[in-house]
Protein backbone atom coordinates (compact mmCIF):
# COMPACT_ATOMS: atom_id res chain seq x y z
CA UNK A 1 0.00 0.00 0.00
CA UNK A 2 1.02 3.59 -0.56
CA UNK A 3 1.23 5.70 2.58
CA UNK A 4 1.53 9.48 2.47
CA UNK A 5 3.07 11.41 5.37
CA UNK A 6 2.62 15.15 5.68
CA UNK A 7 5.77 16.98 6.81
CA UNK A 8 6.30 20.46 8.20
CA UNK A 9 9.33 22.37 9.31
CA UNK A 10 9.01 24.29 12.57
CA UNK A 11 11.32 26.20 14.92
CA UNK A 12 13.07 24.03 17.47
CA UNK A 13 11.20 23.77 20.77
CA UNK A 14 14.14 25.43 22.58
CA UNK A 15 14.01 28.43 20.26
CA UNK A 16 13.34 31.87 21.63
CA UNK A 17 10.94 33.21 19.02
CA UNK A 18 10.55 36.94 18.53
CA UNK A 19 8.35 38.88 16.13
CA UNK A 20 10.21 40.39 13.18
CA UNK A 21 9.72 44.19 13.40
CA UNK A 22 9.99 44.53 9.62
CA UNK A 23 7.46 41.78 8.98
CA UNK A 24 5.10 41.71 11.93
CA UNK A 25 3.44 38.49 10.79
CA UNK A 26 6.76 36.64 10.84
CA UNK A 27 9.45 35.77 13.33
CA UNK A 28 13.16 36.58 13.40
CA UNK A 29 14.82 33.47 12.02
CA UNK A 30 18.58 34.24 12.34
CA UNK A 31 19.24 32.42 15.60
CA UNK A 32 16.47 29.88 15.24
CA UNK A 33 17.21 26.24 14.53
CA UNK A 34 14.51 24.56 12.45
CA UNK A 35 13.43 20.95 12.89
CA UNK A 36 10.88 18.48 11.56
CA UNK A 37 7.65 19.04 13.53
CA UNK A 38 8.08 16.62 16.49
CA UNK A 39 4.64 15.02 15.97
CA UNK A 40 5.46 14.42 12.30
CA UNK A 41 8.21 12.10 13.50
CA UNK A 42 5.57 9.85 15.05
CA UNK A 43 3.71 9.90 11.72
CA UNK A 44 6.88 9.01 9.80
CA UNK A 45 7.73 6.22 12.21
CA UNK A 46 4.23 4.78 12.01
CA UNK A 47 4.20 4.96 8.20
CA UNK A 48 7.56 3.22 8.00
CA UNK A 49 6.63 0.42 10.35
CA UNK A 50 3.31 -0.19 8.54
CA UNK A 51 5.08 -0.19 5.17
CA UNK A 52 7.68 -2.59 6.51
CA UNK A 53 5.02 -5.10 7.48
CA UNK A 54 2.61 -4.69 4.56
CA UNK A 55 5.04 -3.70 1.81
CA UNK A 56 4.59 -0.48 -0.10
CA UNK A 57 5.89 2.97 -0.55
CA UNK A 58 6.00 5.92 1.86
CA UNK A 59 5.79 9.34 0.20
CA UNK A 60 6.39 12.57 2.14
CA UNK A 61 4.68 15.82 1.16
CA UNK A 62 5.79 19.15 2.57
CA UNK A 63 4.45 22.66 2.12
CA UNK A 64 7.20 25.06 3.07
CA UNK A 65 9.89 27.46 1.90
CA UNK A 66 12.94 26.05 0.10
CA UNK A 67 14.75 26.01 3.47
CA UNK A 68 12.26 23.46 4.76
CA UNK A 69 14.10 20.88 2.67
CA UNK A 70 16.15 20.03 5.76
CA UNK A 71 13.00 18.74 7.49
CA UNK A 72 12.16 16.68 4.40
CA UNK A 73 15.70 15.27 4.47
CA UNK A 74 15.19 14.21 8.10
CA UNK A 75 12.14 12.20 7.04
CA UNK A 76 13.97 10.72 4.06
CA UNK A 77 16.85 9.75 6.34
CA UNK A 78 14.42 8.01 8.68
CA UNK A 79 13.36 5.91 5.69
CA UNK A 80 10.66 7.73 3.71
CA UNK A 81 11.09 6.64 0.06
CA UNK A 82 10.56 9.89 -1.78
CA UNK A 83 9.11 13.33 -1.21
CA UNK A 84 7.28 16.22 -2.79
CA UNK A 85 7.73 19.86 -1.85
CA UNK A 86 5.31 22.68 -2.53
CA UNK A 87 7.15 25.97 -2.17
CA UNK A 88 4.77 28.46 -3.85
CA UNK A 89 4.28 31.47 -1.56
CA UNK A 90 0.54 31.01 -2.21
CA UNK A 91 0.81 27.66 -0.44
CA UNK A 92 3.45 28.50 2.18
CA UNK A 93 1.89 31.75 3.35
CA UNK A 94 -1.69 30.72 3.67
CA UNK A 95 -3.98 29.32 6.32
CA UNK A 96 -4.34 25.71 7.43
CA UNK A 97 -7.66 25.11 5.66
CA UNK A 98 -6.24 26.28 2.34
CA UNK A 99 -3.08 24.25 2.97
CA UNK A 100 -5.23 21.19 3.59
CA UNK A 101 -7.04 21.78 0.32
CA UNK A 102 -3.74 22.06 -1.55
CA UNK A 103 -2.38 18.93 0.15
CA UNK A 104 -5.56 17.06 -0.75
CA UNK A 105 -4.93 17.86 -4.43
CA UNK A 106 -1.32 16.74 -4.13
CA UNK A 107 -2.37 13.49 -2.43
CA UNK A 108 -5.13 12.56 -4.90
CA UNK A 109 -3.01 11.22 -7.77
CA UNK A 110 -0.99 9.04 -5.36
CA UNK A 111 -4.17 7.21 -4.40
CA UNK A 112 -2.83 6.19 -0.97
CA UNK A 113 -4.46 3.75 1.44
CA UNK A 114 -3.41 5.85 4.37
CA UNK A 115 -2.37 9.45 5.00
CA UNK A 116 -0.57 10.21 8.25
CA UNK A 117 0.28 13.55 9.81
CA UNK A 118 1.37 14.78 13.22
CA UNK A 119 -1.27 15.53 15.85
CA UNK A 120 -0.42 19.21 15.80
CA UNK A 121 1.88 21.77 14.23
CA UNK A 122 3.81 23.12 17.17
CA UNK A 123 4.49 26.50 15.52
CA UNK A 124 0.96 27.63 14.70
CA UNK A 125 -0.48 25.34 17.41
CA UNK A 126 -3.03 23.98 14.97
CA UNK A 127 -4.32 20.42 14.90
CA UNK A 128 -6.87 20.65 12.09
CA UNK A 129 -4.90 19.16 9.24
CA UNK A 130 -6.11 15.54 9.21
CA UNK A 131 -9.76 16.58 9.37
CA UNK A 132 -9.37 19.21 6.66
CA UNK A 133 -7.52 16.96 4.21
CA UNK A 134 -10.03 14.17 4.86
CA UNK A 135 -12.94 16.48 4.18
CA UNK A 136 -11.48 17.69 0.87
CA UNK A 137 -10.75 14.10 -0.17
CA UNK A 138 -14.14 12.95 1.15
CA UNK A 139 -12.45 10.34 3.34
CA UNK A 140 -12.82 9.42 7.01
CA UNK A 141 -10.26 10.70 9.50
CA UNK A 142 -9.25 9.91 13.05
CA UNK A 143 -7.41 12.63 14.96
CA UNK A 144 -5.02 12.45 17.89
CA UNK A 145 -4.35 8.74 17.67
CA UNK A 146 -2.28 6.98 20.32
CA UNK A 147 -2.74 3.42 19.08
CA UNK A 148 -3.22 2.18 15.53
CA UNK A 149 -3.53 -1.11 13.74
CA UNK A 150 -3.97 -1.31 9.99
CA UNK A 151 -5.28 -4.22 7.97
CA UNK A 152 -5.75 -4.46 4.23
CA UNK A 153 -9.06 -2.64 4.09
CA UNK A 154 -9.64 -1.15 7.54
CA UNK A 155 -7.96 0.39 10.52
CA UNK A 156 -8.60 0.41 14.25
CA UNK A 157 -7.41 3.46 16.14
CA UNK A 158 -7.61 4.73 19.68
CA UNK A 159 -8.32 8.43 19.68
CA UNK A 160 -7.40 10.32 22.81
CA UNK A 161 -10.12 12.69 24.05
CA UNK A 162 -10.44 14.82 27.15
CA UNK A 163 -11.31 12.51 29.98
CA UNK A 164 -11.06 9.24 28.07
CA UNK A 165 -10.57 7.78 24.64
CA UNK A 166 -12.54 6.37 21.74
CA UNK A 167 -11.79 3.18 19.89
CA UNK A 168 -12.63 3.84 16.27
CA UNK A 169 -12.82 1.49 13.33
CA UNK A 170 -12.62 2.98 9.87
CA UNK A 171 -12.54 1.87 6.29
CA UNK A 172 -9.44 2.65 4.25
CA UNK A 173 -8.36 4.94 2.73
CA UNK A 174 -8.32 7.19 5.78
CA UNK A 175 -6.36 10.05 7.33
CA UNK A 176 -4.88 9.71 10.80
CA UNK A 177 -3.10 12.27 12.97
CA UNK A 178 -0.43 10.81 15.22
CA UNK A 179 0.25 11.40 18.89
CA UNK A 180 3.19 10.50 21.07
CA UNK A 181 1.88 7.24 22.55
CA UNK A 182 1.97 5.66 19.08
CA UNK A 183 5.63 4.74 18.85
CA UNK A 184 9.26 5.66 19.47
CA UNK A 185 10.61 7.41 16.35
CA UNK A 186 13.84 5.92 15.01
CA UNK A 187 17.02 7.96 14.76
CA UNK A 188 18.47 8.08 11.26
CA UNK A 189 21.91 6.48 11.03
CA UNK A 190 24.78 8.30 9.35
CA UNK A 191 24.57 6.06 6.30
CA UNK A 192 20.88 6.78 5.98
CA UNK A 193 21.44 10.49 6.33
CA UNK A 194 23.90 10.27 3.41
CA UNK A 195 21.55 8.16 1.37
CA UNK A 196 18.68 10.59 1.96
CA UNK A 197 20.46 13.13 -0.23
CA UNK A 198 20.17 10.79 -3.20
CA UNK A 199 16.40 10.32 -2.80
CA UNK A 200 13.91 12.13 -4.98
CA UNK A 201 12.45 15.44 -3.78
CA UNK A 202 10.05 16.53 -6.47
CA UNK A 203 9.05 20.16 -6.62
CA UNK A 204 5.33 20.61 -7.20
CA UNK A 205 3.69 23.94 -7.97
CA UNK A 206 0.11 25.06 -7.51
CA UNK A 207 -0.32 25.11 -11.26
CA UNK A 208 0.90 21.48 -11.44
CA UNK A 209 -2.04 20.74 -9.18
CA UNK A 210 -4.39 22.82 -11.34
CA UNK A 211 -4.98 25.16 -8.43
CA UNK A 212 -5.28 28.90 -8.80
CA UNK A 213 -4.02 31.25 -6.10
CA UNK A 214 -6.66 31.80 -3.44
CA UNK A 215 -6.50 34.58 -0.89
CA UNK A 216 -6.00 33.19 2.62
CA UNK A 217 -9.17 32.72 4.66
CA UNK A 218 -7.34 33.70 7.81
CA UNK A 219 -4.23 35.81 8.13
CA UNK A 220 -1.94 36.77 10.97
CA UNK A 221 -2.06 40.54 11.25
CA UNK A 222 0.50 40.90 13.99
CA UNK A 223 2.52 38.76 16.36
CA UNK A 224 3.25 40.03 19.83
CA UNK A 225 4.83 38.77 23.02
CA UNK A 226 2.40 37.81 25.75
CA UNK A 227 2.73 39.88 28.91
CA UNK A 228 5.73 38.45 30.77
CA UNK A 229 4.91 36.78 34.06
CA UNK A 230 6.23 38.75 36.98
CA UNK A 231 7.98 37.02 39.82
CA UNK A 232 5.64 36.71 42.77
CA UNK A 233 6.15 35.97 46.45
CA UNK A 234 9.02 33.64 47.34
CA UNK A 235 8.86 31.93 50.74
CA UNK A 236 11.34 29.63 52.41
CA UNK A 237 11.71 28.06 55.81
CA UNK A 238 9.86 25.40 57.77
CA UNK A 239 7.32 23.47 55.67
CA UNK A 240 4.59 24.17 58.24
CA UNK A 241 5.05 27.91 57.94
CA UNK A 242 5.44 28.03 54.18
CA UNK A 243 2.42 25.81 53.62
CA UNK A 244 0.31 28.01 55.91
CA UNK A 245 1.52 31.10 54.01
CA UNK A 246 0.50 29.47 50.76
CA UNK A 247 -2.97 28.65 52.02
CA UNK A 248 -3.41 32.20 53.33
CA UNK A 249 -2.33 33.55 49.96
CA UNK A 250 -4.75 31.23 48.15
CA UNK A 251 -7.67 32.47 50.19
CA UNK A 252 -6.80 36.16 50.77
CA UNK A 253 -5.07 37.18 47.55
CA UNK A 254 -5.80 34.65 44.84
CA UNK A 255 -9.27 34.15 46.34
CA UNK A 256 -9.43 30.60 45.05
CA UNK A 257 -10.46 28.92 48.30
Amino acid sequence: MTIVVILKQVPDTEAVVRPDPSRPQGILTEDVKFILNPYDEFAVEEALSIAESTGGEVVGICIGPAEAESAVLTALAMGVDRAMMITDPGAVETDIVTKGRILAEAIKPLNPSLVLCGREWIDTQEDALAAVIAEYLDLPHVGNVGKLSVESSKLTAVREMDGGSLEIESTLPAIVSCSKDLNEPRYPTLIKIKRAKTKEIKSVTLSDLNLAFEPPRSRVKILSSPPARQAGRVVKGEPDATARDAVAWLSDEAKII
Partner: peptide, 20 residues
Protein backbone atom coordinates in the same frame (compact mmCIF):
# COMPACT_ATOMS: atom_id res chain seq x y z
CA UNK B 1 -14.27 39.67 13.36
CA UNK B 2 -10.63 39.20 14.39
CA UNK B 3 -9.28 37.03 17.17
CA UNK B 4 -6.17 36.40 19.24
CA UNK B 5 -4.66 32.94 19.64
CA UNK B 6 -1.42 31.68 21.15
CA UNK B 7 1.25 30.42 18.74
CA UNK B 8 4.73 28.92 19.11
CA UNK B 9 3.48 27.16 22.23
CA UNK B 10 2.35 30.34 23.84
CA UNK B 11 5.68 32.08 23.31
CA UNK B 12 3.82 34.58 21.09
CA UNK B 13 0.26 35.75 20.53
CA UNK B 14 -1.11 36.13 17.01
CA UNK B 15 -3.85 38.55 16.12
CA UNK B 16 -5.66 36.82 13.29
CA UNK B 17 -7.98 38.39 10.73
CA UNK B 18 -10.62 36.15 9.25
CA UNK B 19 -11.52 37.39 5.76
CA UNK B 20 -12.94 33.96 4.84
Amino acid sequence: VSVVRPVYSGKLLAEVELPG
